[in-house]
Design a protein around this nucleic acid. Sequence first.
DNA 1: CTGAAAGCGCTAACAA
DNA 2: TTGTTAGCGCTTTCAG
Lengths: 354, 354
Amino acid sequence: MNKTGIYEIARLADVSIGTVDRALHGRKEISENTRRRILRIAKELGYRPNLAARALSVGHPAIRIGVCIPREIHYFYDELRAGFVTEARRFEQLGVEVVYRRTKRLGIGEPEGLKELLALNVQVAAICPGDPASLCSLINQAEDRGIRVICVASDAPHTARSTVICVNPALNGQLAAELMARFLPPKAEVAIITGMLQTEDHRKKVEGFSEKFRQFCHGGRLLEVVEGHDDEDETFQKVYALLRRHKTLAGLYVSTANCLPVCHAIGARGLHGKMKLITTDLFKEMVPYFERGTVLASIHQRPYVQGQIAVRLSVDYLANGRPIPPTYYLTPHIVMRSNLHLFREIRRNGIPEG
Amino acid sequence: MNKTGIYEIARLADVSIGTVDRALHGRKEISENTRRRILRIAKELGYRPNLAARALSVGHPAIRIGVCIPREIHYFYDELRAGFVTEARRFEQLGVEVVYRRTKRLGIGEPEGLKELLALNVQVAAICPGDPASLCSLINQAEDRGIRVICVASDAPHTARSTVICVNPALNGQLAAELMARFLPPKAEVAIITGMLQTEDHRKKVEGFSEKFRQFCHGGRLLEVVEGHDDEDETFQKVYALLRRHKTLAGLYVSTANCLPVCHAIGARGLHGKMKLITTDLFKEMVPYFERGTVLASIHQRPYVQGQIAVRLSVDYLANGRPIPPTYYLTPHIVMRSNLHLFREIRRNGIPEG
DNA sequence: CTGAAAGCGCTAACAA
DNA sequence: TTGTTAGCGCTTTCAG
């Protein structure tokens, strides 16, 4: 394990271990000079604290990871949270703890949530920015104070956040496009159903899709991009109308989780199994549509794994001193009928996903 | 963290903590009576050792995971090993250590390797059985002694091994079949290139594929199953001949990692981009074939993640007392051109895969 | 066969 | 501002 401890530092700096402790923890009861000296020596020695000893000594969790996520949309954020919790439990004995604050909805109450986390003295704060602008200064402030902010599932660009963990939205669209192009003959006509294009995330998915679809499908055409605003009725109506406008439409890519009304509209037009449908993410209610062949594939963004990774990066950083990579893009899973049953969202007794 | 420690047990059993320690560790210098009494109390209290304290006390790794894998096939087992090593490092501070023994080739020297691990006093032994029959009694012996044996990547059926971590081979074939069926029109003709059918793993992939291909592709036919015995020349020759025999062949599924000779044969016949090719796993040399459209998709068995999971299950079991699930089937990734660059095998500076 | 006690590296309370 | 010291829960001597 570790070689040099505070005792060794103390010996070299000719002070007591108490003073070393004060220097290392940025406590105030110490002169700037000795602090600098001690920190220099610690660095020269490549000192890394023994977390087992620390955990033992403090007796309660000393590494606190704050998580602030919505509880909206019944599954995605639950999975995300489960990833945080189960992964953190693995490091329980090292004194790792996650504290959880939920917001009502994505984009609502996020600054307040983050503030609460900071007040709880977390070393790392993980957030899903729905409204990045409202969080900007708070994030920068936190990072200034040495608190690492990790964005999960969506990013807060132009901030000092330490990293973002997500499926690159452009890739999401590209992969859907490649699949769609393989599923369809040349010159096929397709459309996209999205949430709202003013959201950067949605826009990038659309861009990714349209760029690659053109590339992979010779003579293929993207007829329309429909904004459903993640509203069930609106989406149903718009898709229902869309299917009527374009009798030649062969494929649909739903770039948001709101795919049920699309399935309904397809059913209402008697197009089950005719229309090639590629969706995003996964939840139980989608199963029958996989089984009927309505949904051919879904791009699964692995929220559970995103939570796990956030914890792992935090522990790697806090416990093992490894730097946090500035972005962490993970590969989405492609859910199809054959592998459907392997996903946590579908199983009764969820198994972990590795 | 933990409430009841050995001190509490000692108090209730009216002995000293030294005696409790002896009881808990099955040391011999203790009477059977007191041992039983102490163990009973410990169980009643739901005692779980504080690993931080143990790690601190012993000063060197106390949790030892043995890994015995081949070094053959340049990438798969390297990735597997990397998964073990990096994940174990996360638990370094808890005293987790992996010891590694390599075998020359899959199926060669496996009993010797496992014996060496057992001699090193591992608590968990992870192995890739290439020749399960030769390992059978050794595995059962180990489990009898309380050493948990984890099979990785392939199984040792009819043994007492604690678990197997792998992609279900049947699923591998099924997923390939579903993809293939979506890529091809009805009544398409396909063939499989495999290693050797006497290997259970290969046979199951073939079965999975043929069952599902029939189901997903109306009127589709599996013309041949070619055994290449994982030999480059043999495979090339056989596929080259195959392509000549069946001018109508539209798709090929390569169920082993040995896909390069297949690509070469396709090239030699001028069929780049015409023949729909689905392969297994991933390594650098495949990249150009993705780019040219020779390979449309590959079923990636995620060796790195398999190694990670083995460590996680071990730690969950050893450190947190969680039972080991009897099988752990993971979802393979589907590698296509759009997501190719995200895989560790392709990147220069490998990033972890979550 | 059992008990007592030292010490692992660190934190925190108290003394100086 | 700094030094000293008592644990945290466990393993490991060494005595009995």
